[in-house]
Design a protein around this nucleic acid. Structure first.
Lengths: 130, 130
DNA sequence: ATAAGTGCAAAGTCTTTGCAGATGT
DNA sequence: ACATCTGCAAAGACTTTGCACTTAT
């Protein structure tokens, strides 16, 4: 018994599946338009929020206030974010230490964990010498 | 040789020091007004951004898109954020496992770490039964 | 005098909402 | 028919910017 998706929703998932990075709603919208899909920006937002609620998609808010989305179970990454220039360097960590070591905390809180975000802030090499 | 702060900036730091939680720019503004300080909202934003750049203050963007600020070295907390109802439960972790175990990664990237944010997303007890 | 800081109002950015038309069962 | 989905435009929320005035050195 699988959930049925609309054509638009299917296209969004399809695009996210072929993507190895997080993406903003706006960029997702542009990509969909490039693929000649007739879709509105609001629908993209609605779809991503819906998927997020379904636990299909993860959301992360950048320091710039944009929301980035990715399929849960796609490449899991954390970032080094430079406070000064804003540069964001990817730290891929397939075997993330978070998931496994904190299970007791979640069960103590009776919290059903879907995903987490872990971001590091500081100065990149360049900005340390200014 | 210490940095000099303006009266407004001093008041902001003072307020943050007497605070054991993160706070939004808007709430900080309200608090300052309550303390009869003549200050504009824009100045609060400017001050917090400035402090963030100075490495005095940490910024975390909530799932709702608000920025929360706190003095670095004040109580360090992570949160359990419910995807459904939005409830955010504090997980205090004084001895956070992140800082110590990943030092090699930062030095490999020649990244000067100031702080990090770690947030958990899923369903709270209530929303699991809906 | 010069540079930095400030308040206010306006503008900007990302996101959400209202609503009428389209789509699917 | 009925409920859901959708695009468009308008509204909303938070934040930043422009500018003239004030403050400090």
């Amino acid at each position: 018994m699988s959930i049925k998706y609309t054509k638009n929703q299917q296209k969004v998932i399809e695009l996210l599946e072929n993507l190895d990075t997080e993406i903003t709603a706006q960029n997702l919208y542009i990509r969909l338009k490039e693929n000649h899909l007739k879709i509105g920006l609001a629908t993209v937002y609605r779809t991503l929020k819906y998927f997020h609620l379904q636990g299909i998609v993860q959301e992360r808010v950048t320091p710039q206030g944009e929301s980035l989305y990715r399929l849960i179970n796609k490449v899991h990454s954390h970032h080094l974010n430079c406070i000064n220039c804003g540069q964001s360097t990817i730290l891929i960590q397939e075997n993330c230490l978070i998931d496994h070591s904190l299970n007791k905390i979640f069960s103590d809180h009776k919290f059903k964990l879907y995903y987490h975000t872990l971001e590091f802030f500081g100065l990149c090499e360049n900005c340390q010498n200014c």
